[in-house]
Simulated assay, not measured.
Amino acid sequence: MGRKNWMFCWTEEGADNVAVFQALITSCLLAGIDPYKYLVDVLQRISLHPARDIRELIPRLWKEKFGANPLKADLDK
């Protein structure tokens, strides 16, 4: 799957970033989480969340702690 997906990343750093997002989206799907809701919630929550508890924002733990009441995007209102 990677070879053709990495073709348009332009740099090795860009390919690494794409791999991180693909891993997050795949983890969400495996945990039964809507990736859009997860990313919207985490990107809003990350600036307020204590650094010592950052593990709570990985998809599996996020589902247990925040999945029932995720933050909404302004576009969803």
Rank of each mutant, 00 (worst) to 15 (best):
A73K: 10
S27T: 09
L29D: 08
T11Y: 12
H49S: 05
G14Q: 13
D16N: 13
G67N: 08
I25A: 08
D41N: 07
W62Y: 02
I25P: 08
L61D: 00
W10I: 13
K72L: 11
W10Q: 15
K37Y: 14
A15R: 05
S47F: 15
E56Y: 09
L75K: 10
L61W: 06
W62A: 03
A23K: 12
P59K: 06
L48N: 13
P59M: 07
N5G: 03
K37H: 11
A23I: 09
K77V: 12
L24C: 05
L71Y: 02
R3V: 01
E64P: 12
K65E: 04
D34C: 07
L24H: 04
V20C: 04
P59V: 02
V20Q: 07
L75C: 12
S47T: 15
L29H: 12
K72H: 14
K65P: 10
R3G: 00
L24I: 09
M7A: 08
Y38S: 05
T26V: 13
R55I: 04
A73W: 05
R3C: 00
R52S: 14
K37N: 12
K63T: 07
D41C: 11
G2S: 01
L75A: 15
Q44M: 15
G2A: 06
N69A: 11
A23D: 09
P35E: 04
K63I: 00
I33M: 08
N5E: 03
R60K: 10
N5V: 00
L30N: 09
E56W: 07
T11P: 14
A31P: 07
E56A: 06
V20I: 11
A15H: 13
N17C: 14
P59E: 00
A51E: 14
D53T: 01
L57A: 08
Q44F: 08
D53L: 06
F66S: 01
M1V: 06
P35D: 07
D76C: 04
L30D: 13
E64A: 10
C9R: 02
Y36C: 13
Y38H: 09
S27V: 02
K4A: 00
L29V: 09
E13A: 14
L24Q: 04
Q44R: 15
G67W: 12
P50N: 12
V20N: 09
L57R: 02
H49P: 10
N5R: 00
G2W: 00
C28W: 03
F21I: 14
P50H: 14
A15K: 06
C28E: 03
L61E: 01
P50C: 09
